[in-house]
């Protein structure tokens, strides 16, 4: 297994090479954040910029979100979900394939800072990381956590940790795909009473501020005018009405159906720690079951809501 410093070295040289060869005018990647356990996006145009590039267990942003903002030749340092989202943006004509260069990086899954903080309540001043362990330290203490114990939920069921097949080059040894989400919890919930289902889903979003950070973090949300901002007709009331909020989440998930790569960017961005992906998972399950579709795995995919089969499921129709 390539060590993290080696991996970072390789990423940096790849980025420099791409800039030097003119294959990219900008390389999008991550750099260390200013506080522990955070990363920030970096848009590298110089060697110096490139020297800051890292891979991190804390790189919770989906870098593909930035792609449509760069019209020229762009390279992206992409873990599996970033790469899939980038492919999706090509399929959805937001970026052009020939302007995109994917530097795929094998990903071992990301960690969830909330879970770390739950296990280590002392103020964390610094964090060191490698493939398997997160070493934490504070004022006069240090401890370490196995990464497996604090993996993000979406990373535990990642079927595309290594962006094989779509990456223009690959750094690091491919990591094996994990068993896909079996939706066991949702299946169990489906058997519960209506009240319980309602309570669960309405409960999820009861603290929602409608700040739309989830939307802004999502690589799929590139519409010039989002339906929440529409006025004629006004799809959603502007007030904090519970049903308006609920509708927002239902429609957000609906718009992402067949397109979401389960990167978890929305949840990571949410200031209220809402498990937003629960809504997406409801539809992902159907999309996979009925149309056997996983977005972002190839350049010539047809998104399921742009096509049909005459024998599509119809049991719900009288």
């Amino acid at each position: 297994m390539t060590s993290l410093p080696d991996l970072n070295q390789k990423i940096q040289s790849a980025a420099k090479r791409l800039l030097a060869e003119g294959k990219a005018e900008v390389v999008i990647g991550c750099r260390q954040g200013t506080t522990p356990m955070t990363v920030a996006p970096i848009f590298c145009r110089t060697e110096d910029d490139c020297n800051q590039l890292i891979w991190s267990n804390f790189a919770k942003i989906n870098l593909a979100t930035y792609l449509p903002k760069y019209p020229g030749k762009v390279a992206i340092i992409a873990k599996g979900c970033d790469a899939r989202s980038a492919v999706g943006q090509v399929v959805e004509k937001q970026i052009e394939r020939e302007n995109l260069y994917i530097v795929g990086v094998a990903c071992g899954g990301l960690v969830d800072v909330e879970q770390i903080q739950a296990r280590e309540p002392r103020p964390i001043r610094a964090a060191e990381e490698d493939w398997a362990t997160i070493k934490l330290s504070g004022d006069g203490w240090s401890s370490s956590l196995p990464k497996e114990d604090v993996l993000r939920r979406n990373c535990k069921t990642c079927v595309s940790r290594t962006p094989e097949g779509v990456a223009d080059e690959l750094i690091g040894e491919p990591t094996e795909a994990l068993p896909a989400d079996d939706y066991a919890d949702l299946k169990a919930l489906a058997g519960q009473s209506l009240e319980e289902k309602m309570a669960y889903f309405k409960g999820l979003v009861k603290n929602c501020l409608r700040c739309y950070a989830c939307r802004n973090a999502c690589p799929l949300c590139y519409c010039p005018v989002c339906f929440v901002d529409e006025t004629r007709p006004q799809w959603l009331g502007k007030s904090q009405d519970e049903m308006d909020t609920f509708t927002f989440h239902l429609l957000r998930a609906f718009h992402c159906s067949g397109r979401c790569t389960s990167c978890g960017g929305c949840e990571a961005a949410c200031p209220m720690d809402i498990k937003l992906r629960e809504f997406n998972r409801l539809l992902d399950e159907e999309v996979q079951k009925d149309w056997n579709y996983l977005p972002g795995l190839s350049w010539d995919q047809t998104p399921p809501l742009t096509t049909y089969r005459p024998d599509d499921e119809a049991d719900f129709i009288k």
């Binding site: 289902k197 609920f246 809504f279 999309v287 399921p304 049909y308 499921e313």
Partner: peptide
């Protein structure tokens, strides 16, 4: 093919609404 495209949307929406507690 309008109804074929509609059927896909309806399938998802119907599933979602009943999953979140619509009778």
């Amino acid at each position: 093919a309008g109804n074929y495209h509609a059927r896909r949307k309806f399938m998802l929406l119907h599933h979602m609404l009943e999953a979140v507690g619509l009778e």
